[in-house]
């Protein structure tokens, strides 16, 4: 049944520190709401367990992109549109800019935030494979201060993260060391915008003297959490791209992922698609990849 607004409380204290002290005072009681593109859908369906919400939409402390020599810090409250219009994100982190352009329609991109995508923790989320490939770190903040954690061990199980009840994600940090990589993203689904992916891939690699010097491959919708395919990467590293490697890459990919059957697709379809996506990436790399 549809939720009645009288049964919910929503406050907007305005500044980050006011929000954090509210979260600290009544731990686990207040649910942050940023762009609301996940929360409001649950709310509309009458499935939102929380009754007290605190708005973090448009908090200035969360909505800026800071550029340092060694990294870029994207505020967790930045929207997909913010990411798409930022020059450096597009230039140095094309996998993230791509994912942003694939996430729902324009209205959704004007509201949905990167922090919301991370904490909503869907295995199908579009921006999360890119964060794995870029080895993103998260700055988490609470009334007690900040801690910095790698995204790769933040997302621990199906829709579970290491975020403490009194914490917010403040920013997503991406190291600026990928300019010599060839980047490649693909979303396989019924249509590109506005649809949950059956499988999505973010990958980048560097060729040197004809061999794959370094490679990072991550996928969504192939496991309970967004997955970096470490074993597949190892099986490809320091090898030339030839027919044997493509075969091996398909096999290791299929063995490494843990896809399921669901309403959007079947496990065996996903395994076949995942293998093909990695092979397709390697082929593109061998023809268009930068030679370093």
């Amino acid at each position: 049944m549809r939720a009645h607004p009288a049964n919910y409380e929503l406050v907007a204290p305005g500044g980050l520190s006011a929000v954090l002290s509210l979260l600290a005072k009544e731990r686990g009681v207040w649910l942050p709401i940023a762009g609301g593109t996940d929360v409001m859908v649950e709310y509309a369906a009458g499935k939102l367990p929380a009754r007290k919400l605190v708005s973090i939409w448009n908090l200035p402390e969360l909505r800026r992109i800071e550029v340092f020599p060694g990294e870029i810090r994207i505020g967790a409250g930045c929207t997909y549109t913010d990411l798409r219009v930022h020059d450096m994100v597009g230039r140095e982190f094309p996998l993230l800019a791509n994912a942003a352009s694939w996430t729902g329609g324009i209205a959704n991109q004007n509201r949905g935030t990167i922090g919301g995508n991370i904490v909503n923790a869907s295995p199908a989320a579009d921006s999360l494979p890119a964060l794995l490939v870029y080895e993103a770190e998260l700055i988490l903040v609470s009334a007690n201060g900040e801690r910095r954690v790698p995204y790769s061990n933040f997302h621990v199980a199906y829709r579970k993260t290491r975020l403490a009840p009194d914490e917010l994600i403040r920013a997503v940090c991406l190291p600026r060391c990928f300019s010599r990589y060839y980047a490649h993203a693909r979303k396989v689904g019924p249509r590109k915008a506005q649809a949950i992916a059956k499988v999505c891939l973010a990958a980048q690699a560097r060729l040197e003297n004809g061999v794959v010097e370094d490679i990072r491959v991550a996928m969504g919708s192939v496991a309970p959490v967004p997955l970096r395919l470490v074993r597949t990467e190892d099986s490809i590293k320091r090898k030339p791209i030839d027919a044997a490697l493509l075969r091996l890459a398909r096999q290791t990919t299929a063995a490494e992922i843990q896809p399921i059957d669901d309403i959007r697709s079947t496990a065996s379809y996903r395994a076949a698609v995942a293998g093909n996506l990695v092979a397709e990436f390697l082929q593109a790399l061998s023809t268009r990849g930068m030679q370093g």
Partner: peptide, 11 residues
């Protein structure tokens, strides 16, 4: 451009 069905009026 936003979808008004997903915006709590306080925001």
């Amino acid at each position: 451009l936003v979808n008004s069905c997903l915006i709590p009026v306080l925001q």
